[in-house]
Simulated assay, not measured.
Amino acid sequence: METFAEYLDSLTEPEQRDRVEEVLTWVENEFPQLKERVGWNQPMFLDHGTYIIGFSVAKNHMAVSPEKEGIEHFSEAIKAAGYDHTRMLMRIPWTKPVDYELLREMISFNIEDKKDYTTFWR
């Protein structure tokens, strides 16, 4: 979590900071093989140098970005979880709980789908 300390310190809303820290810690614990990085002012996780998932903060939600392919693959599950999404990210409202099973599936999908990638992005 040391990699994300400065980013977390920049979050001025305590509830948002706590939620983001909780999610980042969960990813770190569930997928210890992933490497932490802050890029484009977003905490993200990489596997063998390729992007797996990233997070960002907005006024009304935490955004989760598994790239376009991850959003397309999980579009129905995202809607079923009560979240909405754009082409590139899923929005988790601050007022709703995090669906950790969905998050686990998204990360696992990207790890498997990108196992042979040698570039950062798809």
Rank of each mutant, 00 (worst) to 15 (best):
H85Q: 12
R19Q: 08
H85K: 12
A81K: 04
G54Y: 01
E67V: 08
D113F: 14
I92D: 03
T3F: 00
D47M: 14
I71P: 00
S75H: 13
E30T: 14
N60E: 08
H85S: 12
V27F: 04
T3R: 02
T95I: 09
T50E: 08
I52K: 04
I52F: 06
E28R: 14
L11C: 00
E28I: 04
W26R: 12
P32M: 09
T95Q: 13
H48A: 14
R19S: 05
R17H: 02
M44T: 07
I53F: 03
V20Q: 04
H85W: 02
E2A: 09
Y51K: 06
V23I: 13
D84H: 07
E21R: 15
D9G: 09
D9F: 01
I53D: 05
M90A: 08
G82E: 08
L11E: 01
T95P: 02
L34Y: 05
L34I: 08
Y100W: 09
T25I: 06
T119D: 13
E69Y: 13
Y117G: 07
Q16V: 02
Y7G: 02
E101P: 07
F31E: 07
L24Y: 06
H85F: 05
L46C: 11
A80I: 06
N29K: 15
R87F: 05
F109G: 10
L46T: 11
F45V: 06
A81Q: 04
E36K: 15
K96G: 01
P14E: 03
D99Q: 07
E22G: 06
V27I: 15
T119I: 10
Q42M: 15
K79P: 02
M62W: 00
L89Y: 11
R87Y: 09
R91A: 04
F31M: 08
R122W: 12
L102V: 10
F109T: 10
Y117L: 15
I52W: 04
E30I: 07
T25N: 13
K115D: 13
P43D: 09
T118H: 12
S75G: 10
E76M: 11
Y51A: 05
